[in-house]
Design a binder for these strands. Structure first.
Length: 414
RNA sequence: GCGGAUGUAGCUCAGUUGGUUAGAGCACCUGGUUGUGGUCCAGGGGGUCGCGGGUUCAAAUCCCGUCAUUCGCCCCA
């Protein structure tokens, strides 16, 4: 490694990329705001147990993907691999149970020690929303609708499809898990090595396997829908009906499961074919047991997270860079006047570039490279006449303007 | 963590029976135009061939290792 390189799986967001990134965040923030979600931020690191306890001892995130460090004081802290546990912790820490329901939007970096590939980084960024304190299907519907609305606002809804499933309540899931383990145990010889391991840790995951052999076995597996309690079945039916009523199309996917332990009832993913192996752009579900499990007052919750980098890859280049007006002094006498003029225009709301050095040609070229809309030339002639020469870069036309009234005369270039 | 592919100029890439000073396009700089950008013309700068070892008279080229990127698996946003 002869050159200084960024840490594996991390990327710089230089201005071009940053504008796309910000466009996704701003679009999401504005759209979520119309659904009543206010932005909040929790720290990017938490006590390790915040994640270790909540995500489940068997999840890959906890077992091998967390960035965990020991502080000088001997505490163990972890860079957040996702944000739901942090929001839940904040809810408990701040005693917010008096203020339910709570609706939060967030955006920020997350960290997972994974093998990088397309659409997968070690430091990546997520937007997300969390709805706490609502146990009704209306909550699920609103949260999913907000996700669809954001994809729509980004112009990429048509590149995705919404996959929907229910993981039922605890009673349903425990019952189904037992039946499933039974079934797969009878077909152990046909299961892949990975899936044999999943049988112990998280048998539901086998349903999601891409292995062709596994898929054959899965095809004959008992269906979750046959093992739902009446309450869980009714709940899911209401969610589906609500989505249909507001025109949010979805596909039922009985194989859709979640990697994290705290999910129940509704699970959903907005997926795309356009990003290779990383299909999920927004994913989430209901987590009614999470807050109680962390020691807080039993409080239902539902939310989702979306990968900003993945959303950016789907979006067309948007957010163009601002086009400045360039001020080009000619000769030393004009320098001082140019500085004052630049400041006046900036205070009046113009985007202004004042070349730092170089001759006229160089400054004009630099202005062109900055995609300036126009250049204001100030030389001896102009100074003597109290004027500036305005050159429009798009049309190539030039005109004289009075220095005194420039702020108004330039209005078209603001 | 596992498997495949790839690392040559700032960027995209040429460069095979190993053989002198390693090339192109774009970008950059200078001049043609000492008060005018974009096009055009002429010229110019820039490369420890990812890094470290090995084979050889000779390595960008062959071998080993290593790091990185990338595609897939696993997992997930």
């Amino acid at each position: 490694m002869s050159k200084l390189q960024p840490i594996r799986g991390t990327h710089d967001l230089l201005p071009d990329a940053m504008r796309q990134h910000r466009h996704v965040v701003e679009t999401a923030r504005a759209t979520a705001g119309r659904y009543g979600y206010q932005e909040a931020a929790t720290p990017i690191f938490e006590a390790t147990e915040v994640f270790a306890r909540t995500l489940g001892d068997t999840s890959d995130i906890v077992t091998k993907e967390m960035y965990t460090f020991e502080t000088k004081g001997g505490d163990r802290i972890t860079l957040r691999p996702e944000n739901t546990a942090g929001v839940a912790r904040a809810f408990i820490s701040n005693g917010l149970q008096q203020n339910l329901p709570l609706k939060y939007f967030y955006a920020g970096p997350m960290f997972r020690h994974e093998r990088p590939q397309k659409g997968r980084q070690r430091q990546f960024h997520q937007i997300g929303i969390e709805l706490l304190g609502v146990a009704e299907p209306l909550g699920d519907i609103e949260v999913i609708a907000a996700g669809a609305a954001i994809l729509d606002a980004l112009g990429i809804r048509h590149l995705t499809k919404l996959e929907l499933n229910t993981l039922g309540d605890t009673e349903s899931r425990d019952g189904y898990r037992a039946v499933l383990v039974d079934y797969f145990t009878q077909h152990l010889d046909k299961l892949s090595e990975d899936s044999c391991e999943r049988l112990d840790r998280n048998p539901l995951r086998i349903l999601d396997s891409k292995n062709p052999g596994d898929r054959e076995v899965v095809a004959g597996a008992p269906l979750f829908s046959d093992h739902l309690t009446d309450a869980a079945r009714d709940y899911f039916a209401e969610v589906c009906a609500g989505l249909s009523a507001i025109g949010v199309d979805y596909d039922l996917n009985p194989r859709l499961v979640r990697g994290l332990d705290y999910y129940c009832h509704t699970a959903f993913e907005f997926t795309t074919e356009a990003l290779g192996a990383q299909g999920a752009v927004i994913a989430g579900g209901r987590y009614d047991g999470l807050i109680a499990q962390m020691g807080g007052p039993p409080t239902p919750g539902i939310g989702w997270a979306g990968g900003i980098e993945r959303l950016t890859m789907l979006s067309n280049p948007h957010a163009p860079a601002p086009r400045p007006v360039a001020i080009v002094p000619i000769g030393e006498a004009a320098q001082a006047r140019a500085l004052m003029l630049a400041e006046d225009l900036r205070r009046a709301g113009y985007t202004v570039e004042l070349g730092y050095s170089g001759n006229l040609k160089k400054r004009m070229r630099r202005a062109d490279q900055q995609n300036a809309r126009a250049a204001l030339l100030i030389g001896e002639d102009e100074l003597a006449a109290g004027k500036a020469t305005l050159r429009d870069f798009d049309s190539g036309e030039q005109s004289d303007l009075d220095l005194d009234t420039l702020v108004d005369a330039l209005a078209a270039y603001r």
